[in-house]
Design a protein around this nucleic acid. Structure first.
Length: 257
DNA sequence: ATGCCGTGGAAACCACGA
C-alpha cells in the first residue's frame, strides 16, 4: 500500500498537477493539505473520476485537509484534533482505510515567533502529542502524515544557521517534535535514508528549487505495526518542477500488503 | 532575504504562507 502526503497550496489551483501526479504515481492513499477552499468548492467529482473515494474538511481561504483512497471511500474517524473546541482551523482529519489508520494533519506555521501564532503552534503540537499517544499504541498500522511545519534537525534544511529563529526550526518546536517521536514513532524517510539530503519544500522565491534550497517539513510517521511493514519511502521532487507547481512536493511510503 | 512569489477574497489592496 502506497501512502502519500501532498501540501497542494490550493486544491483548485493545483487540480491539473494533482490529477497528473495521481495518474503517474498511483498512490493508494493521499493526504492533502492547504485546500484553500470552502467545503462546497472542493473538486469532488474530478477526484472521484480519477478513481478515488474522498473525505475532506474545507475552510474558506485557508487551511483545509482531505484524505483520498483509491477504489474505496475512506471511513472517517474524526475531523478535528481533540482538545480545543474553539479552534476553528481545518487542520486535521483521520480515517480508517482497509487495515490502516491514517491521520492527515496541517500543523500551524507559527511565524512570526515569538508571538500569538507561535503560541498557537505549540498548543496545537501539545494537542497532537496527546492524541498521538493513543494512536501510537494501536495494534494495527497507523500513519500520521502531513505538513508538520517542523524541520526536525539541521540535516533537514539547506542552511540551518539561517533558520534558528524561525518557527519551523526553533528549539521549542524541535523539542515538541522530539517529544512526539519519543512515543515510539518512526520517521519513515529518515529510517530508510538516514544520511541523504532530502527536502519536501522549496520556496517560490529566489529560485529556491533551482538552487535546491529546501526544507524537509512533510513527514510520514509510523507506529510499530506500520514500521514493520515499511519497504520504501521517497519524495516525488520532480513534481515541484512542473508548471504551476505547489511549493511542496508529494512525499510517500510503501507498506507491505 | 525583513515575503522578491503564489493564492484567495475582497476591493484595486490585504492576509497568509515558511
Amino acid at each position: 500500500m502506497k501512502i502519500a502526503t501532498f501540501n497542494v497550496n490550493s486544491v483548485n489551483a493545483r487540480l491539473p498537477n494533482l490529477l497528473r501526479w495521481l495518474g503517474e504515481s498511483q498512490p493508494d492513499v493521499v493526504c492533502l493539505q492547504e485546500l484553500k477552499a470552502p467545503p462546497e468548492k472542493f473538486p469532488e467529482q474530478q477526484i472521484r473520476d480519477a478513481g478515488y473515494g474522498v473525505i475532506w474538511h474545507g475552510q474558506k481561504s485557508y487551511n483545509g485537509v482531505a484524505i483520498l483512497s483509491r477504489g474505496s471511500d475512506p471511513k472517517e474517524v474524526c475531523r478535528a484534533l481533540p482538545g480545543d473546541p474553539d479552534d476553528t482551523h481545518s487542520r486535521y482529519i483521520e480515517a480508517q482505510i482497509a487495515d490502516v489508520t491514517v491521520g492527515c494533519l496541517y500543523l500551524p506555521n507559527g511565524n512570526p515567533a515569538p508571538g500569538p501564532k507561535f503560541d498557537y503552534k505549540l498548543q496545537w503540537m501539545a494537542r497532537l502529542i496527546s492524541h498521538a499517544r493513543a494512536l501510537q499504541q494501536h495494534a494495527g498500522s497507523v500513519v500520521l502524515a502531513g505538513d508538520f511545519n517542523v524541520i526536525p534537525t539541521g540535516n533537514d534544511v539547506y542552511k540551518p544557521e539561517r533558520w534558528l529563529d524561525d518557527a519551523l526550526f526553533r528549539v521549542e518546536t524541535r523539542e515538541a517534535f522530539a517529544k512526539l517521536m519519543a512515543q515510539g514513532w518512526t520517521d519513515s524517510l529518515r529510517a530508510l535514508h538516514p544520511d541523504e539530503k532530502i527536502y519536501t519544500f522549496w520556496d517560490y522565491f529566489r529560485n529556491a528549487y533551482g538552487r535546491d534550497a529546501g526544507l524537509r517539513i512533510d513527514h510520514l510517521l509510523l507506529n510499530p505495526a506500520a514500521t514493520s511493514r515499511l519497504v520504501a519511502a521517497g519524495v516525488d521532487r520532480h513534481v515541484r518542477g512542473w508548471e504551476k507547481a505547489s511549493d511542496h512536493a508529494p512525499t510517500w511510503v510503501e507498506l507491505k500488503g
